[in-house]
Design a protein around this nucleic acid. Structure first.
Lengths: 200, 200
DNA sequence: AAATCTATCTTGACAGTGTCAAAATTGCGT
DNA sequence: ACGCAATTTTGACACTGTCAAGATAGATTT
């Protein structure tokens, strides 16, 4: 009575672990995710998870990787929707920040030191992030051609800096730096002004 | 034979702890600072530090607080130096990023989730950060008057967004997100173009 | 259907963490 | 010299991640 893959004792521990871990992280923050509590929640012994993920780092990498897929999907969907180039970009800026705030713990795994510096980003995580970044740069190139983003520099460079700006904005909020949440939408608007070539 | 304050057994444990902790953090990262190893390094028992800092969080807050003092000093010194307004601003952008990269672990404590979100920022830390931020906003106001920064919004808002941009840039590098360090100075220059009102 | 194989899971163990409570030390003012 | 209070230590507890060895049981082969 297996679903598809060969699942012996549990059913699909791998998947259960990912889902449960994501939930715990979302609700209680990544620092209160312990492998032991996770195993317990899923109803399995302490070390069972280690047969599906090499270690905690690997589990977190897998979660972050999902995040990149979601983010890339958001980007692609928004590009497909036929907006004005300008509208499309503005929507993405909002969507980017919104995603970061709504999935703040995942976002932190995707772009934070936990995995990239303190931890050990898996190859597939690196690949996923690279791919998402590439999709972004491609769009930037188009936005430059459409004169939405400045042509004063290469797509890579413009992509890097606009990304950095959005990232910084998102981070300040999700990391709990004392900023009034009411300022957010104003800040986003101002940020857009900074980034667009049609800055008045 | 005490220096000033009443130091009984150690000499000045408080200071020693701060210095030693800062060093460990700088050399090995904040995640490999343990209260026990720290105590050991300083040559004192496991729990001795707890009579000088309520807990690990408090110790880290104290370190972060020092960071804010340093950063504010950089800002004030740069303002005092009589540069052109534009030159002054550009120098500060460079100095900001440079500080972040050079003191990356302290920077993370100052502006990261460790203290602000996962932890519990002390009142004096909050005060220090607020004061530094205030100094920044004051300068922004002046820079707006001098037409270096855009007047399209309030000093607060412009201050927040430019800060966020610099923060994002710094974070990407210090968190080990895969960016080529060789791109840094180019990125800084492009960032300046984005931020200044005289963007071409 | 029985035996074997192998993926999966569990038990036991170790070294490490932060931090509390209670006891011990020790310098200072009297 | 004595006691007070600041300072430090010892012992303990509940956690953490993860390794090594054994148990279990579905799948495969005979």
């Amino acid at each position: 009575m297996s679903t598809l893959k060969t699942q012996y004792h549990h059913g699909d521990l791998n998947k259960s672990l990912l889902e449960s871990a994501s939930l715990i992280i979302k609700e209680q923050g990544v620092e209160s995710l312990s492998m032991r509590k996770l195993a317990d929640t899923v109803g399995v012994s302490r070390t069972a998870p280690y047969h599906h993920f090499k270690d905690k780092n690997a589990l977190l990498c897998a979660i972050a990787e999902q995040g990149f897929c979601e983010q890339e999907k958001i980007l692609r969907d928004l590009r497909r929707e036929k907006n004005t180039a300008e509208e499309g970009f503005k929507k993405y800026v909002h969507a980017y920040v919104e995603y970061a705030l709504q999935h703040n713990e995942t976002y932190d795994l995707m772009y934070g030191r936990t995995l990239w510096k303190a931890g050990n980003p898996s190859d597939s995580l690196k690949a996923a992030s690279k791919q998402t970044f590439k999709a972004w740069i491609d769009w930037v190139e188009e936005l430059q051609e459409q004169n939405i983003l400045p042509n004063s520099n290469t797509p890579l460079r413009i992509g890097q800096t606009t990304w950095a700006s959005l990232h910084g904005l998102a981070r300040l909020f999700i990391d709990g730096i004392y900023l009034d949440k009411g300022d957010l939408s104003d800040m986003i608007e101002q940020m857009i002004k900074n980034l667009c070539s049609t800055s008045t």
